[in-house]
Design a protein around this nucleic acid. Structure first.
Lengths: 213, 213
DNA sequence: GGTCTTTGTGACCACCTGGTCATTTTTAAG
DNA sequence: CTTAAAAATGACCAGGTGGTCACAAAGACC
């Protein structure tokens, strides 16, 4: 457990406010860059107080990380359930849209994840990232394997290669939606839902049929 | 011009040593995280000296950025030239391999680029990134357009969507090669050239034919 | 030698960092 | 109202940051 008991004695509202404020700071500045001074001043509490809740910066970070991972895990699980009976490419489509919705609801979580990907400094970075990427790749692998059983997915190419492609495209799509400058030409960033959906459809169709011929 | 004349009066060897040392620091820690103190101590010169060469941290960074961009631009141009007469997918294959070679030769440049993608702090970040991403996407667009003329590339899907996919997959491939934890399953990181080539072939083949059916 | 300019130096500055802790304030119990 | 425990506070600390500047060293020319 990374938080002290004092933290859990706080009214739930305040707990959430602390978490959200710290999450915002971490996701914007990264682990090293995030400033405890700024967090407490944004919260309007004394610096000492935050150290009543968490032993140090690291444990605050890890606590938030767990909180975020749990949210992602739940979301993925739910989509998987809901689309159980549907064709594979429809499931992929839905997954991508679920990602868009998730970013809309929790913008700082996804940005924090991206920040971490390219930071050396975050504590346990390697382990934490592997944790995330593992269940992302497990998710896609199981999707594709079920797709193969239904003969919707080709069998003459390595499953891992396909997972790699899917992962790359989906992740980049969400990055483009969340950050801008990352979409190569398309302007996902400012689009409204119907347009987003059109692009999701097109990109999924493209992954199905390929660029060639 | 971001460097002072004193810098250019230095023996070329020392100029390069300064640039490479600073590049390494920036690419590992990002703009904010990089420490001038560390750079000068690694160089074995006094702190004041670096301020004889560059007016401040920002101009040092921008100078290095230009230096790096020029290297990338040249490399891309050369590949484009060399593969002029070849089939589109062969050109894509070659481009990806050129990326791998580039990382091998200049590991800090590519990492620096990744660092910047998710940093808010770097000066002129937006403009600089757009500069890079623009010529990456121009490069791919022209590749695909020429491919369409030769009827090697499908015409029933937006060119931009295809560029997006290509860009996403190629970039992710290089990330996986440069950083690890990013390959979803494949272990590009530790592979030797022949294996890398096998994966490049497979991934390009997959982009051509698609995942479906 | 002497003189003038260019380059190198590191103590110093103001400011910010994560973290501490003696002290005060708030809350709860009797 | 008293007492004891729990929580909030902010001055303070050591250590880091980018940047400055008076001075010393080195070169260049006569």
């Amino acid at each position: 457990m990374e938080a002290k008991k004092t933290f859990f004695n706080l009214p739930e509202e305040k707990q959430k406010r602390v978490l959200e404020t710290a999450l915002e700071e971490f996701s914007e500045k990264g682990y090293e860059g995030a400033s405890i001074n700024l967090i407490v001043s944004k919260l309007g509490i004394a610096k000492g107080s935050i150290y009543q809740y968490f032993t140090d910066k690291k444990s605050l970070f890890l606590f938030i990380f767990d909180y975020a991972v749990e949210l992602v895990r739940k979301t993925l699980k739910q989509v998987k359930q809901e689309t159980r009976e549907q064709p594979t490419f429809e499931r992929i489509r839905r997954s991508l849209l679920a990602g868009v919705d998730f970013i809309e609801r929790h913008p700082f979580i996804y940005r924090g994840y991206l920040k971490m990907m390219f930071e050396r400094e975050a504590p346990f970075r390697q382990e934490l990232l592997q944790r995330i990427r593992l269940f992302s790749s497990e998710y896609l692998t199981s999707l594709l394997m079920e797709g193969r059983e239904k003969a919707e997915i080709r069998k003459d190419i390595d499953l891992e290669t396909m997972v790699f492609l899917l992962d790359a495209v989906m992740d980049r799509f969400l990055q483009a939606y969340a950050i801008s400058y990352l979409d190569s030409g398309l302007n996902l960033n400012r689009m409204k839902r119907p347009e987003i959906e059109r692009h999701v459809n097109e990109i999924v169709e493209l992954m199905r049929k390929g660029i060639g011929k």
